[in-house]
Nucleic acid binder design. Structure first.
Lengths: 347, 347
DNA sequence: CTGAAAGCGCTAACAA
DNA sequence: TTGTTAGCGCTTTCAG
């Protein structure tokens, strides 16, 4: 139990050496030539006294706090932020860093977000992670640039900050390919109406995959609605009303898929035998709890948090030049999570 | 944009005064007698130079960091942790504090949790919040006691730390009362099988409320299962198979309620006209997205986070003595969130 | 009304 | 092989 009142000096007098010696052995300074006996003695005494370094004083002196700031949008709205934080926290901990977290809102003014970053800067964090709630183009406070920074799950409108984002298109391809592999040839897509990268890129993945399989056009209908359960329900009702009924349905996200489940039930279609469904996001609360379990594409939130942290620390430690990576965002893949909502089509 | 390289000294020379004066005006030190002109000049120069205080140096000197440590269990597993963090962050920000967050696991060894707390102590946080993923009795690392601390959503096994927890029993009463108020007299309870406080207290609330209404015994059956969707489904199948069928069903949590929805559908019961249902937890992803929307009892995670932070800061600032509050946990109410799953019973 | 100077706990250049 | 000492940027006592 570290006693907050024990300092390096106390250890020094107790061990009968100077503070320098204590500092050197405790930090394992490479060029220090200290006898093994002294080293042991210092370590033992430090242990006995319950010495713990005062990281503030260390930081003041070395100009390194070992703290990373994380400004996260809407921490409580989805479990996504939690996964980013977890990825970041584990990566940080593994390298001896800690996280200072500030919550902000996607709708907050630029000024209030600037103030959030400012608070982090006053605490002299070594670097900053800026995480958004969903993949988009974001306008960032200018003071973000005054310390190494990386953007998680978005790209900077100004294009000047290293970013890591999910491979939306690849995820959509994986979803459609799973349907194709199961033997489906009439596959529809229920898309979001928001003009965000995911909307466009998932659609592109859907189209490209089917085109390559020779199945575009009427065999590949798309309906769009608000990306919530109700929107999914409505779009599914429409898309399933067509003659030459679909046997496979790819949904923009798990919530829309949840609506599609209800639409299917109302139409007397059982999943997966009458209709195979695949979602996106892997929101466990939904995907794992629907009946049957929803096969879906996972967003790599944990991985993005970890990747961003790794690279941020590399930059802080001079092992990487972030400006080189800032030209293009890094894209992390979205793997398919198989549950029970896909099977071969009837007959 | 604060320039990290500008210090109080730079402001002093630029303003032609001493650092003392700068410090006094910037901190609005009460006993300092400084002419309004000087004050203005200092403030303007500081602004122009983009001065921002170095909180590390301040902290080293004042022995106050203005940082609160938050160790949170399983941050990514549920949105609950997010709400606690949000409540804590907003309360902290309002009083000029920031949060250092460390994730831990409910199943982590005492030693690893001790190390997490130690990391916070080395950074000289002014106080520590320790948040668990669900309400239970938790064994805490002893070093938690070396700085003011409060427990969120659990009580300490040793009973020595101020804690804030949800009013499980009151929440259950609110749920049952809503059913009674709608006119139901045959009300069942689907409970969890885990031996945790929520299991016992929600059951007690259920029983007490019905007893007071003169409806105990056979009119108030209870079935228990694992507190997941599947368990809810199974328990609901059992409890709905009884003759003299229930018209009201209270579920241990929203996931079990989700299972109950499926059981009802299979039995041809429509919610709420044939069966009124109320859940617990208010997991929005589920409760708001079921059809019809699930009326449920909300856990006050945001409020617990905020309460804990308020009181922790009071203790840090000497306005409160936490040890006085440690005797009994503070209980925050669990309000009913009305959606569309309750109506009057048939006929 | 304002300034000099000590010191918070530590690291690191320099001396011995 | 080890010790002295000057700061890191700030607050605060004490003197003007």
């Amino acid at each position: 139990m570290s006693n907050k009142n024990i300092g390096i000096k106390d250890v020094a007098v107790a061990a009968g050496v100077s503070v320098t010696t204590v500092s050197h052995v405790l930090n394992e300074v490479s060029y220090a030539r200290i006898s093994p006996e002294t080293r042991d003695k210092v370590r033992i005494i430090a242990e006995q006294l319950g010495y713990g370094p005062n990281r503030l004083a260390q930081a003041l002196r070395t100009q390194r706090t070992g703290m990373l700031g994380l400004v996260s949008e809407d921490i409580a709205t989805t479990p996504h932020a939690g996964r980013i934080i977890l990825g970041a926290d584990e990566a940080a901990k593994a390298r001896g860093y800690n996280l200072m977290i500030i919550n902000t809102s996607g709708s907050a003014s630029l000024e209030s977000r600037r103030a959030d970053v400012e608070a982090l800067l006053e605490r002299r964090v070594d670097g900053i992670l800026y995480a958004t709630m969903y993949h988009r183009n974001v306008e960032l406070p200018a003071n973000l640039g005054s310390v190494p920074s990386v953007l998680v799950d978005s790209v900077a409108a100004a294009g000047n900050i290293t970013a890591v984002i999910p491979d939306e298109e690849g995820g959509a391809r994986a979803a459609v390919e799973a349907l194709l592999a199961a033997g489906h040839s009439r596959i529809g897509f229920i898309n979001n109406t928001d003009d965000v990268p995911a909307t466009r890129q998932r659609l592109r993945g859907f189209r490209a995959t089917l085109t390559e399989a020779g199945l575009d056009g009427a065999a590949a209908p798309v309906e769009s609605e608000v990306s919530e359960v109700q929107g999914g329900y409505e779009a599914a009702r429409r898309i399933l009303a067509r003659e030459d009924r679909l046997t496979g349905l790819f949904c923009y996200n798990d919530r829309m898929a949840m609506g599609a489940y209800r639409a299917a039930a109302e139409l007397g279609l059982v999943i997966p035998t009458d209709l195979s469904v695949v979602g996106f996001d892997d929101q466990e609360l939904i995907a794992a709890n629907l009946h049957p379990g929803l096969t879906t594409v996972a967003l790599p939130h944990y991985e993005m948090g970890a990747w961003a942290t790794e690279h941020l620390i590399d930059a802080v430690e001079g092992k990487t030049d972030l400006s080189l990576m800032a030209l293009h965002p890094t894209i992390l893949s979205c793997p398919l999570v198989r549950r029970d909502s896909i099977t071969a089509p009837r007959q």
